[in-house]
Design a protein around this nucleic acid. Structure first.
Length: 372
RNA sequence: UGGGGUAUCGCCAAGCGGUAAGGCACGGGACUUUGACUCCCGCAUUCGUAGGUUCAAAUCCUGCUACCCCAG
């Protein structure tokens, strides 16, 4: 009987994942990860409740249950980078790193040590196969597809991973949980950074990054307010600017950062041109399997610039250690540090980290894409 | 100091005798395994201030105060 180690968060998805594997006859072991030990601002530690739920579920399923602590790894391989990105004025996505470095590396290694044939999580993604090689496919619930967070996985990692709830909808997962009498069947979906949880983001960052006040200016140079520190804002952001009544009375949005002058650039109106771009340069390309085309050869694909965004039809091309993209349509607030994830239909191809975005092609790719 | 004008929510701003629009900001919620966006709800018993007229005033009258403009 093959042993599978399930990463259990105490939520419905991973609980049902364990349940399904158990029913399929695997030797299931539940493991809870604790990678962050701070309490939230209310002095609560949701991890305590989650660990409690994991134990209860495992008891019901009659499977062994352990807790592991990857705090050190999380700190070194995820959080340090996260802060460094913010210091550079960018907006990182810690969860894509967390998946590559913690859940599908540190945790996977741990599972192997337990003698498992593989690991499983409650992610809403499916694993496909082509010519004997693993594919990462979107989840069966289009509203819940989480492939965006897993695009950095390599074949070797995918090969050992199972996603038991990947072809189900959220509603089906909850129903299975309820029918099985799992106590977490109605537990609210978790949000916020994985393992850290829902936070007042500015306050959270203030614990790690110094305040450095400065001006908020329009593109024309007019000072319209003050900011508390560039790191606390991200492109396309509206709330928290505190600019009211100025100009024509419309909403204000962050459109850029001038690190050198410590100036936050803002513009008025949701349709402001500075908020939109078509061309994107992305670094750190990663591919699940072989890249979809040779270097310098443009190819069609779908792109997501953020979680839960529909696939944006686009052209892409690899050049050296970078990916260049041209979306068919205008993209709102493509933000440096965020991930651009590429798709071919249901399959996630991989992706990269956005470095810059703009309405005009970068010099490296001027004229390289076929005319629309 | 004369002459004129304006004073309504943190900001902008409707209102013109009948019992305080709206926008932005802000607060709360929904959505959401990043950050955002979006959506919903809330947000002046009170109209610079003190009196007066009137059944009834932010709206009319008078004094005072503040600011702005023009004279000087």
């Amino acid at each position: 009987m093959e042993r599978i180690v399930v990463g259990m968060s105490g939520g419905v998805d991973s609980s049902v994942a364990a349940l399904l594997l158990k029913r399929q006859g695997y030797d299931v072991v539940g493991v809870f990860m604790k990678n962050w030990d701070e309490q939230d601002e209310n002095g609560e530690c949701t991890a305590t409740q989650d660990w409690h739920d994991v134990q209860e579920v495992c008891g019901l399923l009659d499977i062994p249950c352990y807790a592991v602590n990857f705090q050190k790894e999380y700190q070194d391989r995820v959080f340090a980078q996260f802060l460094e990105e913010y210091r550079r004025g960018r907006t990182p996505n810690p969860d894509v790193l967390c998946n590559r470095e913690i859940k599908f590396k540190a945790f996977l290694d741990f599972a192997m040590k337990l003698g498992a044939g593989g690991m499983a999580t409650g992610h809403f993604v499916r694993r496909g196969q082509r010519e004997g090689r693993p594919l990462l496919l979107k989840g069966g619930d289009p509203a819940k597809d989480q492939s965006y967070f897993l695009y950095m996985l390599k074949e070797a990692q995918l090969e050992r991973a199972l996603f038991p709830v990947g072809d189900m909808t959220k509603a089906q997962v909850r129903q299975v949980a309820q029918e099985a009498g799992l106590p977490v069947s109605r537990k609210k979906d978790s949000t916020g950074i994985c393992f850290i949880g829902e936070r007042n983001f500015r306050r959270f960052l203030q614990g790690y990054l110094p305040l450095r006040e400065g001006e908020m200016r329009t593109l024309e140079g007019q000072v319209v307010g003050r900011h508390q520190g560039l790191a606390y804002y991200t492109l396309g952001q509206r709330r928290g600017l505190g600019i009211g009544g100025a100009g024509d009375g419309r909403r204000w949005f962050v459109i850029g950062k001038d690190l050198g002058r410590n100036v936050l650039l803002v513009a008025q109106g949701e349709d402001h041109p500075a908020l939109y771009s078509r061309y994107v340069r992305a670094s750190q390309p990663t591919w699940i399997g072989e890249p979809p085309a040779g270097e310098g050869v443009p190819f069609r694909c779908g792109v997501k610039f953020r979680y839960r965004q529909g696939d944006q039809p686009a052209w892409a091309v690899r050049l050296g250690e970078e990916i260049f993209l041209r979306a068919d349509g205008l993209q709102r607030a493509v933000t440096p540090g965020q991930s651009a994830v590429l798709y071919a239909g249901e399959a996630c191809l991989g992706g990269g980290i956005a470095e810059e975005a703009g309405p005009e092609p970068m010099a490296q790719v001027d004229g390289i894409f076929p005319e629309a």
